[in-house]
């Protein structure tokens, strides 16, 4: 049973990893914790839903979600976040809360609060390998997430873009001094973070229910993943997400199914109280 639970945990966990990765990219470069990331995820799912309703074929609808969210991310940075450059944490957090209200309100305004669903993306039969049943959808999610993560690591480590990201993360002012256009870079990173949210919704939406409040659940799981892995660490977000999925499934399988819902809260509280830096994070140094 353990192997089965771990496997489905990894399936769930790769979604958490994707969402946490999107939030971490943004946090590293802009130091903003995006409380609206769950709503970006929700918006991606609803864009696919809307395009499919208009008769757009599935692959194009997915592409549409990516393009739309990239544009949305850019617009958010230009219109809402850039005027707040240098503002305290509480204002930045509040702006992302405002964004989450707007997105939820817009979706509820257009589609109402009813639960909707997408047609399934694939229809493969489950595969059985030595007693462990592998869901084909899970496998696709895991593989796509792994591919996306690989692309990110290569980009971050070896490309010019990755070097810019490191420079801006290290010191925005220093980066500006050597000629990096920091606001434009922030803008790009908002777009990238939103695209990662869109990819997560492309992979997950066909298997889940669509409703305006669907983002909250994912957001809290992503917080747990980031906390467990270490806030601001890309590798930490991924490992934390996978671990979070496995912990949930194991707690659900061996303790009680009710534990699935609170495993992430307990992880958050335990990690922040015992080891705030998480698995891969560096302890925060307060400069006086």
């Amino acid at each position: 049973m353990a192997a089965q639970l771990v496997l489905s945990g990894i399936g769930q966990g790769s979604i958490y990893a994707l969402v946490a990765l999107g939030m971490t990219i943004l946090f590293r470069v802009t130091t903003i914790v995006n409380f609206a990331h769950g709503e970006l995820f929700m918006a991606g799912a609803f864009v696919i839903y809307a395009l499919l309703r208009w008769g757009v074929p599935y692959p194009l609808a997915m592409l549409g979600a990516i393009v739309f969210l990239f544009a949305l991310g850019n617009a958010v940075e230009r219109g809402l976040m850039r005027p707040l450059a240098g503002a305290p944490h509480i204002s930045l957090a509040m702006m992302t809360v405002a964004l989450s209200y707007l997105l939820r309100g817009a979706v509820r305004f257009v589609w109402g609060g009813n639960v909707r669903s997408l047609p399934p993306l694939f229809s493969f039969a489950p595969v059985e390998v030595s007693g462990v049943i592998i869901d084909a959808e899970d496998l696709v999610i895991i593989l796509s997430a792994a591919a996306l993560l690989a692309v990110f690591f290569v980009l971050m480590r070896y490309s010019q873009l990755g070097k810019y990201a490191q420079a801006v993360t290290d010191s925005a002012r220093g980066a500006a001094l050597v000629g990096i256009n920091v606001p434009a870079f922030h803008c790009l990173m908002w777009g990238v973070a939103a695209v990662v949210a869109a990819v997560a919704s492309i992979l997950v939406a066909p298997e889940t229910m669509l409703y305006p409040d669907m983002g909250a659940r994912v957001l809290l799981r992503a917080f747990a993943a980031m906390t467990l892995g270490g806030f601001g660490s890309l590798a930490g977000a991924v490992v934390g997400g996978l671990l979070m999925g496995v912990i949930e499934q194991l707690a659900g399988g061996y303790v009680s199914t009710a534990m699935i819902d609170i495993a992430s809260y307990i992880v958050i509280i335990a990690v922040l109280l015992l080891r705030p830096a998480g698995l891969f994070g560096r302890p925060e140094v307060v400069r006086v």
């Binding site: 005027p83 209200y101 707007l102 309100g105 817009a106 979706v107 509820r108 257009v110």
Partner: peptide, 17 residues
């Protein structure tokens, strides 16, 4: 439906900016 949330969002943004 939804208008209440849009109003909250707009008010928050107006306050911040």
């Amino acid at each position: 439906p939804g208008l209440e949330e849009i109003l909250f969002g707009v008010l928050l943004i107006a306050v911040l900016l």
